[in-house]
Computed example of a mutant assay.
Amino acid sequence: MLSRRWQAIRSRARGLGAEDRGVTLAELMVSMILTTILGTMAVLFFVGASHAGYKTVLTNQNSGDARLTLDSWTSMLRVAGWLDPSIQADRFEEITSTKIVFYANLNNRSTAVSGSFSAPAATTKVALMLRVSTPSTGVGQLIEVVFDADNTTVKSVRQLGFNAKASGGQPIFQPYSRIGSPLDLTQLGCLAGTTPTAGLCLQSGQPGSGMLDPTIGAGSLAVTSGAYRGNPALNVDKALNQIGSIAIAFTALDPSNTSSMDFSSLASVSSGFPS
């Protein structure tokens, strides 16, 4: 009797469906591995999408900064004025491939002249430059320095572009004569200490010129007088006073330096009086 009942129980056990048997250890391990792989793929997808979005935001911001920089610098150069208007002298003090120092009628741009002629306000000394932070690539920051009336005390320092360089090895600042001929920035018109150096520099010691060769330090935005002075052996004062326009060109890079956008403008230099 017991034997027949045991056989019946075994028979019913053999007749159970696959869905009643549970899962084996091998099936459980395969399931865990697949779940881990799918979870990892999902995390990587969301991280990649988030990184791409963040990179796009930074790239757009960098491009916007570059456009604002170009507009600001072009506007300033268009009102370049004479340090001494009576003799039309000393308008551009220094021009190299990455720096330009000049005097501008910033305080005269909104001055209304009516009736008899009124003398324009004093010009403002301005220095625009690329501070190279990565010499191997030439990438650096676009910086603007504006001086007080004494041309020595710094009024403001603005870091306008954070990841820029010269476009295709061309100078960021390219001066042209009044007849449209480019001035050669490779000529040794400057002295760095006692070493003749490429660029165009007025002879040092100009009355009222203030700080000479404004330079930005590597670790801060402090402005100090640099080493560049005019080279007496190659006096370029006349060429500087005959400049008719300045071309500005630079390349803005994204934070990872994988994509870039070129910016350029041509600023026609005014006569040095309010327009």
Rank of each mutant, 00 (worst) to 15 (best):
F92W: 01
V47K: 09
Q88N: 12
R91K: 08
L34E: 06
R78F: 00
L70Y: 03
E93N: 09
T36Q: 11
T98D: 13
N60L: 02
V79L: 00
V79P: 01
T59G: 02
A52T: 13
A52D: 12
G64L: 03
F45G: 15
T69G: 04
N62S: 09
L34T: 15
Y54I: 06
S86H: 11
A80T: 10
A80R: 00
G53I: 09
G39S: 15
A42Q: 12
V57C: 04
L70Q: 10
R78H: 01
Y103P: 05
Y54P: 00
A80C: 00
F45W: 14
V79K: 01
N107Y: 11
H51S: 12
M29A: 14
T59V: 09
H51Q: 13
S110V: 11
T35I: 12
V30H: 05
L38S: 15
I100Y: 03
R67G: 10
V101N: 07
E94F: 01
A104I: 02
Y54H: 09
I95A: 07
I95L: 06
A49T: 15
M76I: 02
S50F: 12
L68S: 12
A66W: 04
T40A: 15
S63E: 10
K99L: 02
Q88Y: 01
A89Q: 12
L70G: 05
S86R: 14
S110N: 13
A42Y: 09
T96C: 03
D84T: 13
F92S: 06
A52P: 03
M32L: 15
G81Q: 02
L28S: 07
V79S: 02
R91L: 00
E93A: 09
S31C: 12
V30D: 06
V30M: 09
S31A: 15
T74W: 02
M41P: 07
T69K: 05
V47D: 05
T35H: 04
N108D: 10
I37D: 11
Q61W: 07
R67D: 07
A66D: 06
S97G: 08
N62M: 06
D90M: 01
T40N: 14
S63D: 09
S110L: 12
Y103C: 01
V101P: 02
S110D: 11
G81A: 13
E94G: 07
G39C: 13
V43E: 04
T74Y: 00
S72M: 08
A42K: 10
